[in-house]
Amino acid sequence: MAIRQKCIKKRKALLNATLNLVNNNGFHDAPMSKIAKMAEVSPATIYIYFENKQDLINQLYLEVKSEFSTYVFKNYNEKDCIKDSFKQVWMNIADFKLNQIEASNFLSQCDNTPMIDEDSRQAGLKNLQPLINLWERGQQKGVIKLISPYLLYAYTVYPLSFLSNMKQKQTFVLSEKGLEEAFEAAWDSIKL
């Protein structure tokens, strides 16, 4: 059991080191040697857990995306009205993006660069299926505009990345009132 726990710790250390290096230096300036050094393992140890750097990045992405999904859909009840269900999910996304900075920054990089492969990107998108289902249900009920889920995401969720960036730069801090206003603006952008 102790050996198994040690293996889990090493793998987690490698993932955390990768997350930190990619966020601070970018994908290309995060060589395996730096990852190993930061994780305090030998470079050869990486290959026990991952085939190569691409596999490491893909697995990190899928784990962070899964954590994001778990966070986003906590307390979500699909039986609530469309707006209330969406508000719960949106507020969870806002909380994650504004307070889980390392993970949020990594996911933003993955969304905006070709860092991860297409199979991993598609697998990661499956984590958002409950939100897509909610939007489809809202469209079927005539509550949400009949536009692409990509446009719905762009108008409602993507602005939270901007607000998170402004918070990190200490340019703008979103108050509780501001958060409510941001949600209402997001809802107004997609409701019929």
Rank of each mutant, 00 (worst) to 15 (best):
M1L: 10
I3A: 05
K9N: 12
K12E: 14
A13F: 00
L15Y: 02
N16P: 09
T18F: 03
N20L: 12
N25L: 01
G26W: 00
F27A: 05
F27H: 07
A30I: 03
M32N: 14
S33G: 09
I35Y: 10
K37D: 13
E40H: 12
E40A: 10
V41C: 09
P43C: 05
A44N: 14
A44G: 15
I46V: 15
Y47M: 09
Y47P: 15
I48P: 09
K53A: 02
N58A: 06
Q59H: 12
Q59M: 10
Y61E: 08
L62N: 05
E63R: 07
V64S: 03
K65D: 11
S66P: 01
E67C: 10
F68L: 13
Y71E: 09
V72I: 12
F73Q: 09
Y76M: 07
Y76P: 06
C81R: 04
C81F: 02
K83H: 04
D84F: 00
F86H: 11
W90G: 06
M91K: 07
D95H: 11
F96I: 13
K97S: 12
K97N: 12
I101D: 13
I101N: 11
S104V: 07
S104M: 06
F106K: 04
F106P: 08
S108P: 06
D111Q: 14
T113I: 11
T113A: 11
I116S: 02
D117V: 03
D119V: 14
A123Q: 15
L134E: 00
W135F: 10
E136P: 02
Q140A: 02
K141E: 12
K141Y: 02
K141V: 02
V143L: 04
K145Q: 15
L146G: 10
Y150C: 08
L151Q: 15
T156S: 15
P159K: 01
F162C: 11
S164F: 00
Q170S: 10
Q170W: 01
Q170A: 06
F172Y: 11
F172M: 07
L174T: 13
G178A: 02
L179M: 13
E180M: 01
E180I: 01
E181Y: 01
E181D: 15
A182Y: 00
A185G: 03
A185F: 03
A186P: 13
A186V: 06
W187K: 06
L192H: 14
